[in-house]
Amino acid sequence: MGQQIQVSGLDAYYGKHKAIADISMTIEPQSITAFIGPSGCGKSTFLRTLNRMHEVIPGARVEGKVLLDGEDLYAPDVEPVAVRRMIGMVFQRPNPFPTMSIYENVAAGLRLNGKHSKSNLDGIVETSLKSSNLWNEVKDRLNKPGAGLSGGQQQRLCIARAIAVKPEVLLMDEPCSALDPISTLAIEDLMAELKNQFTIIIVTHNMQQAARVSDRTAFFNLSGQGQPGHVVEMDDTSRIFTNPSQKATEDYITGRFG
């Protein structure tokens, strides 16, 4: 379960501005990979190129290759919509659909993509909510609006919504930055459970979080103001945090900049 992602020579642009340059990496299945680095270094941009969300922004485009299990996501006959069904995403701020109930939120990805029988949906909604450790908290109020939950619950609802469409990969863009420490812990525990089923990639500003949850870590940096972001190094998390090979990584980890 979960598939490997191989990126080679990837550049991303906003109009004329090059945001990230020449990124190549391999992301292993059934593991958690963390992206760390200072603000504005292109971590989130890179994350969004992996499920073709980058191009949603007017004027944004991508060059290079992203292979999911050997298939190029940017091949001309591949539709972005299909890519996003394979590679789910959780955003920085919890964003449940305000007009939908908890149940409808989880079922949204399936319902909006085609017809599903009621019993089939019931099963998937329950499984997904259980997988995201939310079932016990919401099973009695599935028809209440999703916006009525607490921030941490909303974020787990968004995770349930993302895994309900059964993606291979789960992208998480600073999923805990808007949450309190207890909710953050719940999400981190959840990630550890989910990595058996999905390839998980998380962007985080919190280095302790990266050290706690991830198996591998990639450090992103900028060479200078206005320069595109790039990957300085990528290695096992334990190595990055104890014995990085690059001076810049060490400086960042030890808090000398960023």
Partner: peptide, 21 residues
Amino acid sequence: MATPVRTRDGGSALGRSASRR
């Protein structure tokens, strides 16, 4: 704990047929 059921249909993982959708 239930594992999501894979409904992948082999080679067309990216659903070239997805144009239908």
